[in-house]
């Protein structure tokens, strides 16, 4: 704990900020909040409330259900998405699956590594194999499931 505080202090010092009130400190901590949510279509969204960027991919569960992914095609940066519009296509064992955007916004980055290495989706679905980053106000996130809710949803589906 001590070292964490010390590092925060250094950071504050670098920014040449005046002595912080408690209120300012908590606001600053809140800026770096990252919320991870899940959809019923087995996608994950990781939303950085500071940058207002949502990183989207498919869940490990979805990747294992799809089997070996052989091709990934993603919409390109600049594409405007609405909730439910297609952000890409994944093909695995002769199945073409559309991936739908859980949020509205604009694609700011697509993970081109997946074009060359589609197998990353199976290897690290919720990490390296993120698909797109979307600039969004994130208003749709509220309605999505948190980790616990998604676990329950998967169990339900398995019945």
């Amino acid at each position: 704990m001590a070292s964490l505080f010390a590092r925060s202090a250094v950071r504050v010092g670098r920014n040449v900020m005046p002595v912080m009130s408690k209120r300012a400190f908590s606001a600053s901590a809140g800026r770096f909040e990252v919320i991870k949510k899940y959809t019923k279509d087995h996608e994950w969204v990781s939303y950085d409330t500071d940058s207002k960027i949502a990183t989207i991919g498919i869940t490990t569960y979805a990747a294992s259900a799809l089997g070996d992914v052989v091709y990934v095609e993603l919409e390109t940066p600049g594409t405007a998405l609405t909730e439910g519009s297609s952000l890409g296509v994944v093909e695995s064992v002769k199945s073409a699956s559309d991936i739908y955007s859980p949020v509205s916004g604009e694609i700011v980055e697509a993970n081109d590594a997946l074009t060359d290495k589609p197998g990353l989706v199976n290897a690290d679905a919720e990490g390296e194999a993120w698909m797109v980053k979307v600039a969004t106000e994130g208003s749709e996130l509220e309605a999505l499931m948190d980790a616990e809710g998604y676990e329950g949803f998967k169990k339900e589906g398995a019945h």
């Binding site: 019923k40 279509d41 002769k94 199945s95 073409a96 559309d98 739908y100």
Partner: peptide
């Protein structure tokens, strides 16, 4: 054979 999956149908 080949397959297609959309949201909740296949």
């Amino acid at each position: 054979s080949a397959f297609k999956m959309v949201k909740d149908r296949a």
